[in-house]
Write a protein that binds this DNA or RNA. Structure first.
Length: 427
RNA sequence: GCCGAGAUCGCAUAGCCUGGUAUCGCGCGUGACUGGAAAUCACGUGGGUCCGUCCCGCGGGAGUUCAAAUCUCCCUCUCGGCGCCA
């Protein structure tokens, strides 16, 4: 959510951003109009309250002096004022609610270097990494590999939960665990603190970190308890500091979290989504930074560099992409994706997403820091995947496959696995 | 799940019984003193603001009252005790 100060002092900035995104400026005008009404309503209410406070204090004085007629007169006056205040208060609250409902739908201000484009076709290449593997046989898709090696149970999982859930078995499950440990170790060596978050959150905290429409399309709700399963550990790890003023000396706070992630994936269909590429539950190692606004763009580059170094060390071929205006979403001000090459699909597909959300989440969550001049300001929040394990498994399987369908383990993971080749499962 | 005690500005803490302007301290900021600093002293230090001897704010919500941090009820969380439990 954008700060009201921005609407009052630099509304041209918001308008210019909407032009760039190719969306209507109408909501901006609505916010300004509601704000003008609110200021007026609030002022009227304050004046009425002032009158009442003054009169009510006079009652205390009059009671001590015992002037019964005077007490009665003032009390009648105060009762009338009370009714008027209630009405004005109700009007003001309704205006705030209307204003913020519109304000929440207004997206973050983009970084000036975000490429302009209508949809994902407008994304541009940032850099290309690793060598594209060559096969002297027909490369298989990950679907074929998991089936011939019996590494994944999709149909049996469907019996007990539904489609898009899975059991991960044997060497592939062990590789998943190895990836988690390796990625956590890798990021911790760079000064991040490992944190395991809760995987459910309440509505209020969740509204602070995500787009409202996500409640319909992304999140699972746990009904009787009014909780939501987290879609990524970014959400609990960012929200954990809500309503706090952080000691400036503690910034930046750098965290690496691991959690199961739950997504409804409403409307996702198609051949490219089969297997374990797009599923309702997967595990993700995530980097989070809570930063002084002055440093956040440097941290954003650092997060990307961590990903590049990590994925280079796995010896995989991928590209880094600049996400364009039309593909950005509401919360991020700038976003890089890593897209791994999948020989089975003959395409580059998203495996990592690295965002600077600037103060957009922090405004909503009221995560502030104390500045030198003793005033408060919102922090910046950043997040980046390190590895989403199920997608990393797909990339490793497809790029490291052998002719017989077995898979070579990346060098750096061999110590975590205790073996260099993934063998088929016996059942 | 049951019983009890709590939640007050960045931190800490008083006010609650007995309703009438949010207290002391620490930290931080500004100024004075100084060659400079420390120490000391003064002022400031939740949000809003049309800058007022203004309005709001004491975990959240409702109620009683002319008036609620203060009284009543409901909820959330924390701490202690008991129970259950991987």
């Amino acid at each position: 959510m954008l700060n009201m100060k921005l609407f009052k002092e630099q509304v041209e900035l918001i308008r210019a951003d909407h032009e760039k995104r190719g969306i209507s400026c109408e909501p901006i005008d609505t916010v300004l109009e509601l704000e003008a009404q609110l200021v007026d309503a609030r002022h009227q209410m304050e004046m009425a309250r002032k009158e009442r406070n003054t009169a009510a204090r006079a009652i205390g004085v009059a009671k001590k002096s015992g002037d019964a007629a005077e007490i009665e007169r003032v009390m009648a006056e105060v009762t009338d004022l009370g009714k008027r205040i209630d009405e004005l208060d109700e009007a003001a609250n309704s205006l705030i609610e209307q204003r913020d409902r519109v304000r929440m739908s207004i997206p973050n201000i983009l970084h000036k270097e975000v490429p302009v484009g209508a949809d994902e076709g407008g994304n541009t290449q940032h850099s290309l990494h690793g060598d594209k593997p060559e096969f002297d046989f027909d490369a298989r898709t990950h679907n074929e590999l998991i089936e011939m090696n019996k590494w994944v149970e999709l149909e049996r999982a469907a019996k007990i939960t539904g489609s898009r859930f899975f059991f991960l078995k044997g060497d592939l499950a062990r590789l998943e665990l190895a990836l988690q440990s390796y990625a956590v170790d890798f990021i911790c060596k760079r000064g991040y603190t490992f944190i395991q978050p809760p995987v459910m959150m309440n509505r209020q905290a969740y509204e602070g970190v995500t787009d409202l429409s996500d409640f319909e399309t992304v999140m699972y709700g746990v009904e009787p308890d009014k909780l939501y399963m987290v879609a990524t550990s970014e959400h609990p790890l960012t929200a954990m500091y809500m309503d706090e003023v952080i000691d400036t000396a503690l910034l930046p706070i750098k965290m690496v979290g691991v959690s199961a992630c739950f997504r409804r994936e409403v409307g996702a269909h198609g051949l490219s989504d089969r297997g374990i590429w797009r599923v309702h539950q997967f595990t993700k190692v995530e980097q989070i930074i809570i930063s002084d606004p002055e440093d956040s763009w440097q941290h954003h580059e650092d997060l990307l560099q961590n990903c590049i170094d990590l994925w280079d060390s796995l010896d995989l071929h991928y590209e880094v992409v600049n996400i364009c205006t039309g593909d950005m979403g509401t919360v991020a001000a700038r976003k890089y994706d890593l897209e791994a090459w999948l020989p089975g699909a003959d395409a580059y597909k998203e495996i990592v997403s690295c965002s600077n959300c600037t103060d957009y989440q922090a405004n909503r969550l009221k995560i502030r820091y104390r500045k030198k001049d003793n005033t408060h300001a919102s922090v910046h929040t950043l997040n980046s995947t390190a590895v989403a394990t199920s997608r990393a498994l797909v990339a490793i399987m497809e790029q490291n496959q052998l002719e017989d369908g077995r898979v070579k383990v990346p060098e750096v993971l061999v110590p975590y696995m205790g073996k260099g080749i993934l063998e088929p499962c016996s059942f």
